[in-house]
């Protein structure tokens, strides 16, 4: 590989942080934002068929996104916790987008602080789960909250240059 190409290669996220670190960040976020006694248990449960995701993009020496994924009822329950809403409070879809986006934003800000500078953080987005690029550039926490699946991924951007860029994308 040429010197120029080498400078374009993105270091895999797993060289910088591991799932334990992401879980530790999530633990702090859950305690502070979701509520005392609310725990994100690092034990996977079967993923729901339909999910919603929120993410923030990180741009810098490492490009990618921090993504939070769960099913819609779990998103509503998380929103109720963040707002400390009690029935009969009505949670609107935009509230769920906002709440999940803020969880991704706070997780993303803390992940970014561990990455090489200069990096910048984008605004939260929500929608279908964005595709991950490569397994080597992916840090994943499969967890459960209140018994429901919740996944946090720190994933390299699709199209970001990688050391093994000649391999066929998976």
């Amino acid at each position: 590989m040429s010197e120029h190409a080498s400078s374009l290669v993105q270091q895999p996220i797993t060289d910088v942080l591991d799932a334990t670190t992401v879980q530790r960040i999530a633990d702090d976020v859950w305690t502070a934002l979701v509520g005392d006694g609310e725990v994100l248990v690092p034990l996977p449960v079967p993923a729901p068929e339909q999910t919603v995701s929120a993410w923030v993009q990180i741009t810098g020496p490492w490009c990618g996104a921090v993504v939070v994924t769960c099913d819609q009822p779990t998103g509503v329950a998380l929103t109720e916790c963040l707002l400390r809403a009690r029935p009969p409070a009505v949670i609107e879809p935009e509230d769920v987008d906002d709440a999940l986006g803020e969880l991704a934003n706070v997780l993303g800000g803390n992940v970014k602080s561990l990455l090489p500078e200069p990096s910048s953080l984008g605004l939260p987005q929500t929608g279908p789960t964005p595709p991950a690029s490569r397994p080597e550039d992916l840090c994943r926490v499969d967890a459960q909250w209140r018994g429901q699946s919740l996944t946090i991924t720190v994933q390299g951007a699709t199209g970001a240059p990688h050391a093994e860029r000649n391999e066929v994308p998976q």
């Binding site: 963040l82 707002l83 605004l123």
Partner: peptide, 12 residues
């Protein structure tokens, strides 16, 4: 804050 949820959290 552009997030209503976060404004509520800050105020709380």
């Amino acid at each position: 804050d552009d997030s209503r949820v976060m404004r509520q959290i800050v105020i709380r």
